[in-house]
């Protein structure tokens, strides 16, 4: 520390100049413009992808050549009592219902397993675990999000499927259940992480109030903290849904990929994402099959967007209900 006596009496003033007239703040404007540009580029990229997918999907509805082979109605209607996705057979069949059902089925299985598991884990970590345990567990679970999906898929293919077969005696080794369980692994970290954040964001004053009213710890957790974190947990589930329905590698490896239209869990399933991944590389550009694959992509895009949109609306509604009009 400087001795006070050595500080010179006359110190140069650092007071801002008294003029209020704007000077050319070119650098300021430049930086602002640059940031704006970068932001716009990222938005534009997403829009262009949507535009491109839409453009390639459109011939399914408009082109006469494509419609000779496949029509919009034909993609949903049965053909001689069968719903078949066989785009490369002698008579190509483009029924997309098995793919839709496959995607939804596998995603729902994943959510059924992942949501209770992740939310309970989040409750434990945020409400019950000690500080040390929490600091260990949270990053550890979040690290799982970094596991490449091909690794999870490989695990599901080699290990999980054997376990499932041993446990339930399924006829087919690769099936919707195995793929769904694999997906559950993939979405657990994100559902956990977002739920845990939501639980931790609940104000401590609710906890204090509940305790002062004579709540036990579990009553406080289940009747006050969990409902208060409800919107955040709902958002976590919506995120998990989006991740699961868009996930490709795990379902390619573990689902068995047979396009069957049924609700059974131990049968093979083929999802929209797996179909695009496996067929788009081989398809003749501009062929009806090519355009149908893009149509599937657009469908996935729209449905994920719709789920996110309505999910967001629901979360907003829940927030408003909890928090009143303010």
């Amino acid at each position: 520390m400087q001795d006070v006596a050595t500080i010179p009496r006359e110190i140069e003033s650092t007071r801002p100049s008294r003029s209020l007239v704007a000077k050319g703040r070119i650098v300021e404007r430049l930086v602002e413009g640059l940031i704006k540009l970068v932001a716009l580029v990222s938005i534009a990229a997403v829009l262009l992808i949507l535009l491109f997918v839409g453009k390639e999907a459109l011939p399914v509805l408009t082109s006469a050549i494509v419609q000779k082979e496949v029509t919009l109605g034909g993609m949903f209607a049965s053909r001689e009592g069968l719903f078949s996705w066989q785009p490369v057979s002698d008579i190509p069949k483009y029924n997309i219902l098995p793919l839709l059902v496959g995607s939804v089925k596998v995603t729902l299985i994943a959510l059924v397993f992942a949501v209770p598991l992740s939310v309970s884990a989040a409750l434990y970590v945020s409400e019950m675990a000690g500080k040390r345990t929490r600091e260990l567990l949270k990053p550890a679970i979040e690290l799982l999000a970094g596991v490449p999906s091909v690794v999870i898929g490989f695990f599901a293919l080699v290990v999980l499927s054997s376990w499932v077969q041993a446990a339930f005696g399924t006829e087919h080794r690769l099936n919707a259940l195995v793929a769904g369980l694999g997906l559950a692994f993939a979405i657990c970290p994100i559902v956990f992480s977002v739920s845990e954040d939501a639980l931790r964001a609940v104000p401590g004053s609710y906890r204090t109030a509940a305790t002062a009213l004579g709540s036990s710890r579990s009553q406080t957790t289940l009747r006050v903290i969990l409902p208060a974190a409800g919107p955040g947990i709902a958002a976590a589930i919506v995120l998990g849904f989006g991740r699961a329905i868009g996930e490709t590698m795990i379902v390619v490896l573990a689902s068995g990929n047979a396009a069957l239209l049924d609700g059974s869990l131990d049968h093979s399933a083929r999802t929209i994402t797996a179909t695009i991944a496996q067929e788009l590389g081989e398809v003749v550009v501009g062929s009806p099959h090519y355009h149908v694959l893009f149509f599937l992509g657009a469908l996935l895009f729209v449905s994920t967007f719709a789920v996110n949109f309505f999910g967001e609306r629901m979360v907003h509604g829940m927030r408003a209900k909890l928090g009143g009009s303010r």
Binding site: P203, S205, Y206, T208, A209, A210, A212, V224, P227, A228, L322, G323
Partner: peptide, 10 residues
């Protein structure tokens, strides 16, 4: 009863 009102979000 506390200094800051703390009703539940119910």
């Amino acid at each position: 009863v506390f200094q800051r009102s703390n009703p539940f979000p119910k």
